[in-house]
Amino acid sequence: MSDALLAETVHFAGAQGDVIEGYLARPLGRDRYGGVVVIHHMPGYDDPTKEITRRFAFYGYAALCPNLYSREAPGASPDDAAAAVRAAGGVPDERLVGDVDGAARYLRALTGANGKIGVIGYCSGGRQSVLAACSLRLDAAVDCYGAFAFFDPPEGAPVAFKPLAGLLPNLSCPLLGLFGAEDQYPSPEEVDAFDKELTRLGKPHEFHSYEGAGHAFFSVDRPAYRPEAATDGWRRIWDFFGTHLAS
């Protein structure tokens, strides 16, 4: 099997038909592959997130990371873009759903796409992954330590940022949750309550919480990186997407 891949910036229609930027990585030399929408964290459409996107291509998926800050800060550096969007109140939930939908449509239209689409997000993107899976028809979703995916947002949060618990009956696909047992956002209490509610609703899911890991344990460029948790987490992701996004 070839390990060649192609990664490049593309443009596609997001929410409201707005043309937004995205980073696409796809395997070469494969006839059929599933698609993964990668949702970047709040610090932005940055190099580490693009590296994650390429990693999916290396493992045989077409992956597309939409630049959620395309509209406010086209061409800006990721940190300047994140600051500008933060000052403007953040990414509205409705727009996020439209941008993920646009990315999913783009992936489904690729030559070789098998039509299966997963979504994965880290940190704020973890919550947005759950939001997308409750709003769109998808085949698999992964929430990596997204705070407020179940508990209500904090007082003072932007109004375009809604509680998700009431949307969970609409969850359209299996959900994999990866959390740090030492994280406080989401806290073990939030993860436990989230898990119980999905069980009560009969929604297929599997949650894993890693001892010795806190928030952002996948981040290889930050002190929070925990290699054991990250290595096992990646293994869970490959198993999960291998099951639900296979041709």
């Binding site: 709040m42 800060a73 550096s77 600051a83 500008a84 933060r86 952002a216 002190p223």
Partner: peptide, 22 residues
Amino acid sequence: HPAHAPADHTLNIDFINRSIGP
């Protein structure tokens, strides 16, 4: 989260002018 500081979280301050650009 910081973009540059070697820490998981920092107190961040941005002095900006949105009309000029990001």
